[in-house]
């Protein structure tokens, strides 16, 4: 059936709606592009035949053109939504992506991520003139200044704002400035303990 491969890509997006990024379907994309090329060639053949006087080919051309546009739309939707997902990850994980996520991205997507990183950093630095503002901090409205956290993984030494050095060992508990450890919580090193 026409445009079936493209639909498959869209289904893949639908299935991964929970926020995970499935592997980039290079094969699928290539097949869609191949189908488009074949459709286009057929169309050109038919158009030149029509020009030479043959009749009755016109509706076929139109159908193929519709299929071409549908393929294009599905393919772009696939790429766009993946970028959207990747963009979200910049806000979740910070500027360095975990290996398993990167593994699922194609090379151009990795490049795009790098670009996005850069422009976001440039933007955040330029806010308000001096020093800028890190927008990836303060994601939740602050309730208290200090929070209790538990370490989920060994992280090593951590220097707090007032110069104390603490060791973040697995399963140890600390009472820290929220603004200092927010990014560690998002990375999954610490866990906010709610009583």
């Amino acid at each position: 059936m026409l445009a079936e491969k493209a639909l498959e890509l869209i289904r893949e997006l639908q299935r991964s709606k929970d926020g995970s990024l499935p592997p980039y379907n290079e094969d699928g994309v290539r097949q869609v592009l191949e189908e488009m090329r074949a459709l286009f060639e057929q169309n050109q053949k038919d158009v030149s035949a029509t020009v030479e006087g043959e009749k009755g080919l016109f509706s076929g051309v139109q159908l193929r053109h519709a299929a071409l546009e549908r393929n294009k739309r599905c393919l772009l939707a696939y790429l766009y939504n993946r970028l959207e997902e990747i963009r979200k990850m910049r806000w979740e994980f910070g500027s360095v992506l975990p290996g398993e996520v990167k593994y699922n991205m194609c090379e151009q997507e990795v490049q795009w991520f790098g670009k996005y990183n850069k422009m976001l950093a440039t933007y955040m630095r330029s806010i308000g003139g001096v020093g800028g503002l890190d927008l990836t901090q303060d994601m939740k409205p602050p309730k208290t200044l200090y929070i209790e956290v538990r370490c989920l993984a060994d992280h090593g030494e951590f220097e707090t704002q007032d110069g104390n050095i603490i060791v973040l060992k697995k399963n140890s508990q600390h009472f820290l400035l929220r603004s200092e450890c927010e990014h560690l919580i998002r990375q999954g090193v610490l866990e906010h303990m709610v009583h």
């Binding site: 592009l33 488009m36 294009k72 772009l76 790429l79 670009k115 440039t122 933007y123």
Partner: peptide
């Protein structure tokens, strides 16, 4: 924000062109 928007648009379009659009038939 304007600078950011410009760059963002350019990077998106660049990505689409690189992966998909330039492999498509010329009229698409």
């Amino acid at each position: 924000e304007y600078t950011f928007a410009k760059e963002y648009q350019a990077s998106m379009e660049g990505h689409f062109k690189n992966i998909a659009l330039r492999h498509m038939p010329p009229n698409l």
